[in-house]
Design a protein around this nucleic acid. Structure first.
Lengths: 203, 203
DNA sequence: TATCGAAGTGACACATTGTCACATTTGGAG
DNA sequence: CTCCAAATGTGACAATGTGTCACTTCGATA
């Protein structure tokens, strides 16, 4: 987490630092990124950087969490729009992500995030779909989801349903970027898999 | 890929190097690992290391691929044992992994592999379940899988079925290690999710 | 045993990291 | 307004790691 000092920074300086970090993490994956490049680009001294962040991972997850939070709003409004249908929601969400990530300059770092997925990255990105940890996931989502359409015995299973959907979604995005699929091809694959999930893999 | 020179090395020296690498990658994730530590432990000069491998990633994926190959044999024999039932097979496979990884000293590096999952790591580990790329996956698997039990229109969908199962399995292993779940708890979660996959998430 | 290509070796130049002693700014008390 | 302490800014520095390269040694073959 960034320090308080960082949040207190004048907006302009903060933005410049964020932009520099986005640029560096778009160039290479986190562990190849160089703090030297970030501070050079942002025009701040090296020492200052360490006053704001613990290291490069810290900045990276700050950027990632910021994105996840933004997407969460989209997710919940889509969920309302589709009357709580999680599959329709995810289909549209996936389409939006696919359309936005490759076109917006400052989102390029997300490509590396998906290609170099770690447990922490998945956790951060999973927050697109709910608040905080596993327990809050049920409480946060339940009011929005149309449970009657789901094949779950208990409400606990809702967590599993979501985790399955998230896992499959993540893998699809990863594949989209790693195999450089067209938007159409990626969409088609995703729809097939969501459909299989709905109907079940077995007869 | 390791160089030919590496493969030609006397077995003892090769083993010592592999052991040293396993040890280092068990200590920390790839990108924190130090070649200096590996060569020190293996008792070889730094220059030699670069004669065998391109860098630390190269050694790491060599270890990972070796493991994946070993597991593939297990996977196919289980598949035969269970008469082509992919879900029974995966359940037993998961149990074996859960039991072996935490107990075998030289497999500790797999924990870091799962926790720091990248596209490349997933690709390597996915080879546990089939040969080479996507196309070969169908041909390699089809003879073993009991297709009649699956809810697939075309055989192409078999690829999607496998990818869904792999994605969900990977996520479960990741969660097992990141949340330090007991073997029993992890197994229970996995069974719930496999069951949901079979029956379908929707009514 | 002479020769030559392959394999081994470790010092080196360069990059990156996190820290720390010192400089500067800021805001509140007198 | 002045002063001081705490907060913030700064960049040189030690420590560590990386990949390379000129040189040495080995071993098979004539």
């Amino acid at each position: 987490m960034p320090t308080l000092t960082f949040y207190n920074l004048p907006e302009e300086k903060k933005q410049k630092l964020v932009a520099a970090a986005e640029q560096e993490f778009s160039r290479v994956p986190v562990y190849e990124a160089s703090i030297a490049n970030i501070v050079r680009q942002a025009g701040i001294p090296r020492g200052s950087f360490y006053q704001y962040f613990e290291g490069k991972e810290d900045v990276f997850f700050f950027l990632l969490n910021t994105q996840a939070q933004k997407r969460r709003r989209t997710f919940f409004s889509l969920l309302e729009k589709h009357g709580g249908d999680i599959f329709q929601t995810m289909t549209e969400m996936y389409a939006i992500l696919l359309q936005e990530i490759p076109t917006q300059e400052n989102l390029q770092f997300l490509r590396h995030a998906f290609l170099n997925m770690t447990h922490k990255v998945e956790q951060s990105l999973a927050e697109m779909f709910s608040y905080g940890d596993r327990n809050e996931m049920i409480d946060g989502l339940r009011p929005y989801i149309k449970m009657s359409a789901l094949n779950t015995k208990s409400e606990d299973e809702l967590v599993h349903v979501m985790q399955i959907i998230i896992a499959v979604t993540m893998r699809n995005i990863m594949e989209k970027f790693s195999r450089n699929l067209s938007e159409e091809q990626a969409m088609e694959n995703y729809k097939i898999e969501l459909n299989l999930l709905q109907k079940g893999l077995c007869k």
